[in-house]
Amino acid sequence: MTRWTGREARLLRLALRKNNKRFAAMVGISTRQLTTWEQRGETLFLHTANQLALDTILSRADSAAQERFATLLTERAAVEADERVEELLSSRAHTIKHPVDNKLMVLVEEGVYLSGPDNRSVWLDGYLIDVYPTTNRDYAQFVKATGHPPPQHWPGGRCPTALADHPVVWVSWHDANAYARWSGKELPSSAQWEKAARGTKGRVFPWGDVATAAKCNTAEAEIGATTPVSRYQSGVSPHGCYDMIGNVWEWCSTQATDGPDRYELKGSAFTSPLQRSTPWLRNAANVRMKDNDTGFRCVKQAQAGGIAC
């Protein structure tokens, strides 16, 4: 259940799109009392009876209102600034814009990183990786240029405007690999993906070692759908990559060991609990699998002495 303070009560009112008078009547309090709740915000913990009333109102709300409430509830934490994030966002020295799909890519320099739950030392050559997962807008360029079939969730085969900045989903490994070839890139190996997500020093999560669900779109957010790829600024990885945890599972180029025609997936999704989101976690699926929580991003080997594509 939600822990209700004056802040959460206000966010529920906004999600339901009710004015103060109508929302107060739903809760069974006066408009003046509601105004006090909202003014005091997080400093005011509501009595048990009011907690239960708000729980009931939320449970009876339609799915659109519940999604709006979940989005509002996590919005502040998603963009919460800290020195690490500010430093990463202000520095573009190691980024380029790819000439084919115009996606921003960041350099992951050659060297050792700590891999897996046991932090084994692994060497990787330098490479560039997309800062954001491939979006519906990105994928639309590919579909237009190649005639590749669009994802099944696009109405009439056209990229939905409301989802343009969300990660593309309903793409098989073959679809993702075709996009990578068209753009002159590749799908990342599971090791490349993990290093971009954790950095070199063995972090448990992209942002550090503390399991903070508000920094990513996992099941705990209760959004139940994808979110824009640039939303979770506070969850950015040490290399400046977004959505390395949550939002969508991402296809890799590494073949799985549990059967033929299967490739590894990384990162978890909005359907997954945070406990199944660590960057070293192994997951895999058949190359023909498509789902509403599976997408991808691409990599490109860095040139010696520079980062040009």
Rank of each mutant, 00 (worst) to 15 (best):
A269V: 05
Q192C: 10
E222G: 09
D175P: 05
A225E: 11
L163W: 14
A221H: 05
S172E: 07
G224A: 03
R198P: 06
L265N: 10
G199R: 01
T218Q: 01
W280Y: 15
E222R: 15
H174K: 09
R203E: 09
R231H: 12
K290A: 13
E264M: 14
D293E: 01
S272A: 13
A191R: 06
W182T: 08
T212W: 09
H166G: 02
V169N: 00
V236A: 12
Y263H: 13
S237D: 10
W182G: 09
A256P: 04
A285I: 00
V236L: 15
N292H: 07
H166C: 13
A164V: 12
G267M: 10
A256W: 11
T294H: 10
G202A: 03
Q275I: 14
R282K: 14
Y242S: 08
T200N: 14
E250N: 12
H239W: 11
G240D: 01
W170H: 10
P238N: 12
A197L: 07
A164G: 07
A211E: 12
A176P: 07
P228Y: 15
T212G: 05
S190H: 06
T161D: 07
P188Q: 03
S268F: 01
A162K: 07
D175R: 02
I245L: 12
A214M: 07
Y179M: 04
T294P: 00
G235F: 06
P167K: 07
E264P: 02
A196E: 08
W249F: 14
L281A: 07
R276W: 15
A269E: 05
R288V: 14
R181H: 11
T212R: 10
G259D: 11
S253P: 00
S230I: 04
G208S: 08
D293P: 00
T200V: 14
E222P: 05
M244G: 02
E250H: 08
L274H: 11
A176N: 08
V171C: 04
Y263S: 05
M244K: 03
K266P: 10
M244E: 04
W154C: 02
K185W: 08
W182R: 12
D175N: 03
T200F: 00
A178N: 12
L187G: 02
L265P: 11
K201E: 12
P188V: 09
G267K: 08
C159N: 12
Q255P: 11
